[in-house]
Amino acid sequence: MYTLYHFPISCSSAVKMVLEITGAAHQERSVNLFEGEQHQAEFLAINPLGKLPVLVEGENVFTQGEAILIYLSQKHKNAQLMPDLATYQGMEALQWLNFIASSLHGHFTKIFHPEKISHDHQVVIQNAEEEIVKLLNLIDDTLENRQFLAGNLPSLADLYFAVVLGWGQVLSFDLYERYPHFASYKKQLQAEFPLSHTLQNI
């Protein structure tokens, strides 16, 4: 039995999707980021960094979303969420996962918390959005030639990107109007994983 410390709009949603897709027994512990529960002593005792997601399995406490996703994909290989990591296809899927989790997510974090970068919040937000557009352009170009990020089969990178697509409302433009292909891409992903309630409603 896994315990996932989770908040619906956060990147922990990608871990929730994987748990649903694999059918792994799990329970949730809500950590309300808007109310600052991630900074309270009770949660900091579990993860001193005050970050989501956190996955608990028995006596083991796992942090860092990307690492948790890879761990679950390897432990529940029947779900086929990643290719063999020792192959070219596996390496490509890992590259895309890192691209989404580090590069793209990182720039969205600057928009969510510009005060951590500079007192001039608008400059931080504008610069971050410019970088996000560059990355989204690259993703859009990639998806013109393939069904999913790492090829014709979905991977963890696609699940993480589905979460990021839900953050588009913080941008100064309509994400799906600018990138109409993303809407059909998300529908294809939802069709691939009908068992994930989280993915169906993101």
Results as ranks from 00 to 15, higher is better:
residue 139 I to K: 10
residue 183 A to P: 01
residue 189 L to T: 00
residue 148 F to H: 06
residue 160 Y to R: 10
residue 163 V to Y: 06
residue 88 Y to L: 14
residue 171 L to Y: 06
residue 1 M to D: 12
residue 115 E to H: 09
residue 181 H to V: 13
residue 33 L to W: 09
residue 137 N to A: 06
residue 39 H to I: 08
residue 19 L to Q: 02
residue 95 Q to G: 07
residue 185 Y to R: 01
residue 106 G to F: 04
residue 182 F to N: 14
residue 26 H to P: 11
residue 89 Q to I: 10
residue 31 V to P: 13
residue 122 Q to E: 10
residue 123 V to R: 07
residue 117 I to M: 13
residue 89 Q to V: 06
residue 190 Q to H: 07
residue 124 V to T: 13
residue 106 G to M: 05
residue 149 L to D: 00
residue 128 A to H: 04
residue 44 L to A: 04
residue 81 L to V: 03
residue 40 Q to M: 12
residue 32 N to Q: 14
residue 50 G to V: 00
residue 197 H to P: 09
residue 156 L to S: 03
residue 195 L to I: 01
residue 109 T to P: 07
residue 158 D to F: 00
residue 64 Q to M: 04
residue 24 A to D: 10
residue 13 S to V: 11
residue 144 E to Y: 07
residue 117 I to V: 15
residue 172 S to F: 01
residue 104 L to D: 00
residue 12 S to Y: 12
residue 168 G to N: 10
residue 14 A to I: 13
residue 33 L to Q: 09
residue 120 D to W: 01
residue 114 P to N: 00
residue 171 L to K: 04
residue 34 F to E: 15
residue 40 Q to N: 12
residue 97 L to F: 01
residue 153 L to D: 12
residue 64 Q to D: 08
residue 172 S to W: 00
residue 19 L to M: 09
residue 151 G to S: 11
residue 202 I to S: 13
residue 153 L to H: 14
residue 77 K to E: 12
residue 170 V to E: 02
residue 96 W to L: 06
residue 112 F to E: 08
residue 68 I to T: 04
residue 23 G to S: 05
residue 78 N to D: 14
residue 117 I to T: 15
residue 154 P to M: 02
residue 83 P to A: 03
residue 124 V to H: 10
residue 32 N to R: 15
residue 43 F to G: 01
residue 72 L to C: 10
residue 73 S to W: 03
residue 99 F to W: 06
residue 197 H to Y: 14
residue 38 Q to M: 04
residue 21 I to R: 11
residue 36 G to M: 03
residue 20 E to M: 06
residue 15 V to R: 08
residue 125 I to P: 08
residue 49 L to T: 10
residue 92 E to Y: 12
residue 6 H to F: 08
residue 113 H to Q: 13
residue 178 R to M: 00
